[in-house]
Every structure is written in C-alpha cells, then in structure tokens.
Amino acid sequence: MLEQQLLNALTLGSVYALFALGFTLVFGVLAVINLSHGAVFMVGSYVALALITHLQASLWVAMLGAMLASGIVGLLVDMLILKPLRARNAPHLIPMIATIGVGIMLTSAAQGLFGAEVLRFPEETLPAGEFVIGDVHVRALEIAIVAIAFLLMAVLFVALKRTQLGRALRAIAESPKAAWLLGINVEGLFHITSFAAAALGGIAGVLIGLNFNAITPFMGQPMLHKGIAVIILGGMGDIRGALIGGLFLGFAEVISKAYLSSQMGDAVAFGLLFLILLVRPSGLFGRKLERKA
C-alpha cells in the first residue's frame, strides 16, 4: 500500500515541481511574483481539452498546443502588463496586484466559455494500460506524467546550466543592469522567460487535468497556493529548490491523506511547510533575498 502511495506522491510531486519551476524562474529573472501563473495553468488544461474534443487532436498534439497557448498568454502578460510597469519603475507589490487581476480575468473567461462545471477528457484519449509491479498498479498515464515532467525539468536545468541563454538568464537574475551593459537584450530575455515559464505552467495544467481527469475554471487557485508554498520552501528563485520543494509537497500531501485524514491532507502538508520555514526561514536553498538594482 505504501508503494502505491509513493507512486501517487511522485506523480503529483513532479507536476507540482514543474508548475513551481516556471513560477520561480519568473521570480528569479524578472524579480516579479506572477500571480497569474495559477490561471495560466488552468488555461493549459482547457486548451488541451478543447483541442481534443473540438479538433480531435491527439493527446500529444494537445499538450504541445497547450504549452504554446499558455506560453503566449504568459508572453502577453509580460508585454502588456509587466513591461509598462517596469518602464515606470513600479514598486514590487504592483505587478502582484496586476497579475492577480489577470488571473481573475482568465478564470472568468474560462467560466464564460466552458461553464463552471467539471469537464473531463474523453476516456479513449487517455493513455490506456496498466502494469502491476508487486502489489503496485502503475498506470501508463502516471508514467507519462512523471516522464514528461522530469524531461521538461531536465531540459530547463541543462539549458540554464550549460548554455549561453542560461548564463544570460542567471546573469540577469543577479544584476539586470550589469547584464544589459554586457550586451544582453534584457527585455527580450524577460519575454522568453515569461513564455517558457507559462508554457511549463500550462503543461502542468494538462498533466494535473489528466491525472485527476477533472478540469474546472477554479483549478488554478489551489495550485497557485501550492506553487507559492513550494517556491518559498525551496528558496525564492532557486531552481533546485522548486524541484525538491514540489516533490516534498506532493509526498506530504499524499502520505498525510492516505495515513492521517483524507480531509486534512492539505492542512497537514502546509503545516509541515510552516514548521520547516520556522527552522529555515529562507527556504531549503535560500539565499539572501537581496538583489542589486
């Protein structure tokens, strides 16, 4: 039974990590907490659903479409909202409020277009098949979710660590001004970051939608809270932290639901987070929350 729960936890945790990774990337590079990330997550799952039900797209095409569409939403948020705020040197709280507004607009739009009821992917589009390893039932769907989440995270890690694009992004995270004067088109990389982060958020939405086979306009909100918890736990802006934090939250939630109380899963998980942060206020991989202008 424990093994089965661990598998569930890994599935959930890997998607949390994927979601949080985009969230923390935007914070690291743009120094903005983009609170529309939860709504972008929801947009991803609806786009995939619409592609499958209306255009008979395959699941894989739907996933790519969802990434692209949510990436574009992220790009537009950056170009239309965050960029003008940057140009006016808006204080940190302003982009947070502005992106809360974006989140509400996207949620309302989804409600208007698709209704408030729970929608589901048609059964036949889900990856079928199930393996039994010992007493553990492994659904092909879960393997696909974990594989996609880890693959995307690996691509991001390698890109950040080993490529010029990654070096430029890390340079901006430390000092946008120095990076700019070294010839880096900082605004351009802000756009790329916003696109990539939202694309990761969008595919996370598809994966969660598939895992529970339930999509609602309001699914972004609890995810946003979890994402915030994960990146604070991991250390704001820290990529490894988002991975470890996401997996941790997945495990804490699933295990407490399974062994303590099915009602109290989130409460226990968040309580645990609180205790960890009492001991390590800057998060697992936290560094000083300072940055040069």
Partner: peptide
C-alpha cells in the same frame, strides 16, 4: 563600448569562466 562599475557588479553565483562568457553574449 564596454564598461566596469564603480561598485563592482560581478555575478557572484557563477564561476569566473562563466562570468566572462556572459560578456560574449553577442
């Protein structure tokens, strides 16, 4: 045209080689 700063602004979380490579962006 390249410049250095009155208050040093190196990228502290990168190694020296990476710091220099950031300058090669173009």
């Amino acid at each position: 045209i390249a410049r250095t700063f009155q208050n040093i602004r190196i990228f502290k979380e990168m190694d020296l080689l990476e710091n220099v490579m950031v300058g090669m962006h173009d």
